[in-house]
Design a protein around this nucleic acid. Structure first.
Length: 224
DNA sequence: GGCCAGGACACCA
DNA sequence: TGGTGTCATGGC
């Protein structure tokens, strides 16, 4: 097992090295929490640059509110989502979330935030189109709940550094961080953003990890 | 022209 | 539970 592959202290060292060498990422890039939620759905398996186009489309059409999105026809919504791909599926997903948000919380982020985190996570996962990563992104970045977000980048980075086995489940990956880190929204926010940064630039299928900021600062490493 | 991007779901064994 | 196909545009 890899449970002892990296101590809490070593993982914090990784975090501080990344923060020092890359700098804060200022996540999530959005003007208000509802925009974060819609962005989290739109960015599923999609480059953020393409999501920004859709966000701008929605803003220009005054559609970036739960009330407006609940009224716009799904086909019209799909055409606006087109730049970020999977537009038919994502239009349906946005509609499903908005219905839930209005029915349960009257479109209020504040009301939603008051609910217990675990219960909220189960609720989110029951909505069509919201899986573990999207649910956790909403909880952490939009609702400021202390949940660590993991993704394919995170998995790749941990595996390539020998800190976790290949193809872990989402829960294994998430537990890896939450068992080692103090429960801290700001830390979870920044750490995930930093991992995304190095994943995006340095840890693709064809590794270019010689450029990785962690290259000479691996607590326990193996050849990358 | 192929690969990949801040996943999730349906279907199958 | 684990593997595979599908959804789809856009940048490099």
């Amino acid at each position: 097992m890899h449970k002892d592959s990296l101590t809490s202290k070593e993982l914090m060292t990784v975090y501080h090295q990344l923060l020092k060498r890359i700098g804060p990422r200022h996540w999530w890039p959005a003007d208000f929490p509802f925009e974060i939620i819609i962005g989290a759905i739109l960015t599923q398996n999609t480059a953020w640059a393409n999501v920004k186009k859709t966000i701008n489309n929605l803003k220009q059409n005054n559609l970036l509110s739960p009330q407006a999105l609940s009224k716009v026809p799904e086909k019209e919504l799909a055409s606006l989502i087109r730049p970020s791909g999977y537009f038919n599926q994502k239009a349906k997903k946005v509609k499903q979330f908005v219905n839930y948000f209005l029915n349960h919380y009257q479109g209020s982020i504040k009301k939603m935030s008051q609910k217990n985190t675990n219960a909220l996570r189960k609720e989110l996962l029951s909505i069509y189109g919201i899986g573990p990563e999207t649910a956790d992104s909403i909880l952490l970045y939009a609702l400021k709940k202390p949940i660590f977000v993991v993704d394919t980048y995170t998995s790749r980075i941990l595996y390539r550094h020998g800190w976790l086995h290949e193809n872990p489940s989402y829960k294994e990956l998430q537990d890896f961080f939450m068992e080692r880190l103090p429960t801290d929204v700001a830390l979870f926010n920044e750490f995930h953003a930093l991992l995304d940064y190095i994943g995006h630039f340095y840890c693709r299928k064809t590794p270019r990890c010689d450029l990785c900021p962690l290259k000479n600062r691996l607590p326990k490493n193996r050849a990358l």
